[in-house]
Simulated assay, not measured.
Amino acid sequence: MIEIEGLQKTFSAGDNPTAALKDVSLSIKQGEIFGIIGRSGAGKSTLVRCINLLERPSAGRISVNGREISSLSGAALREARREIGMIFQHFNLLSSRTVFDNVAFPLELAGRSKAEIAREVTPLLDLVGLTDKRDRYPSELSGGQKQRVGIARALASKPAVLLCDEATSALDPETTKSILALLRDINRKLGLTIVLITHEMPVIKEICDRVAVLDQGSVVEQGTVFEIFTAPQAEITRRFVSDVIDRPLPSMLIERLQATPLTQGNVVLRIVFTGPTANSPIISEVVQRYGVLLNILQGNVEYIQGAPYGNIVVEAVGQPQAVQEVIDHIRDNNLRVEVLGHVADAHRAVA
């Protein structure tokens, strides 16, 4: 659907050109919701603007729906852009036009008749839940309603691709969820390919099928959302993921935690369960087999793309050799485990 090969974009600023995109290559499939995430200044908005040639790349190729657009201009480019809808962070609605007229605007520019426009716009307003707002003006709408108008307007030309540039960043969490649910519904009903640019990992987790992580103009990692969340490779990705699914350790535990083993102490472990392993009875197994008690200090389970991801922190109470055997056993069962540190054994300390 969208093929990006060796994309580069350099902005000239006097004697100091800035490389906003560096050899970016991505393949986005028909009908998927593909997320592109990065911090401010990573090149996300430049990338999405290159996809519809609002920014012309310095080098590389972009193909949309089997058609290379990176070399187009004039009428050919305008025709190609009709297949690419776009919604923005700040809505970009025309304040002097009603909801109906805002959605109708691209059809008017295309020279469609009033009857054709009415036939096209009315079902779009129904699709985005704004039939009762058709005669209202943007100033009378909430932020979520304005974004729904923007979505309907982007769909008016019946695009094959919908680009979303920070489309939920200006919205509160509850409204964000409703807009993401709407985009998912549109994706399923229309088979629309959606490219979603964001700096918010919860947005990626909520709606995307696959994701690419952009850092300083380069793609540092890409994969399914489940892969990226459960086994991030790049440091920037790990930071994104930890903001969403790794709960901070309790302050009382942090105060007790030591980096080196203690004479009368226990090891603190983080055990990660992913996919089918989330249902593994590993805690009861190691207690029975090795005589090591695993005292749960913290735990939670997330569902990512419908698959469970569990993360528990335990204090392993037992002889050092038996604890090491437990760690080896856990790893042999394809679970991730890391030693967070050591704590004094409260019961032995009291004794």
Rank of each mutant, 00 (worst) to 15 (best):
E5R: 14
G6Y: 14
K9L: 14
K9F: 14
K9D: 08
G14M: 00
A19Q: 08
A20E: 05
S27G: 09
I28F: 09
E32I: 04
I36P: 04
V48A: 04
I51N: 05
N52W: 01
I62K: 13
R78W: 02
E79T: 12
E83Q: 11
G85Q: 01
Q89T: 11
S96G: 10
A115M: 12
P123Y: 06
L124W: 03
L125R: 09
V128H: 00
G129M: 05
K133F: 08
D135L: 13
P138G: 03
Q145T: 04
R148V: 08
A154Y: 03
S157G: 06
L163W: 07
D165M: 13
E166G: 13
A167D: 03
P173N: 09
T176F: 00
K177L: 15
K177Y: 09
I179V: 15
L182C: 11
R184G: 08
D185G: 03
I186F: 10
N187S: 08
R188A: 10
K189M: 07
G191M: 11
M201K: 04
D209E: 03
E221P: 08
V225E: 03
T230S: 15
R238F: 01
R238L: 01
D246T: 10
L249G: 04
T263R: 14
F273N: 00
I283Q: 06
E285N: 10
V286M: 03
Y290I: 02
Y290D: 02
A307G: 11
V314P: 01
A316C: 07
G318H: 07
D328E: 15
I330S: 04
G341N: 01
A344S: 14
A344T: 11
A346D: 14
A346C: 01
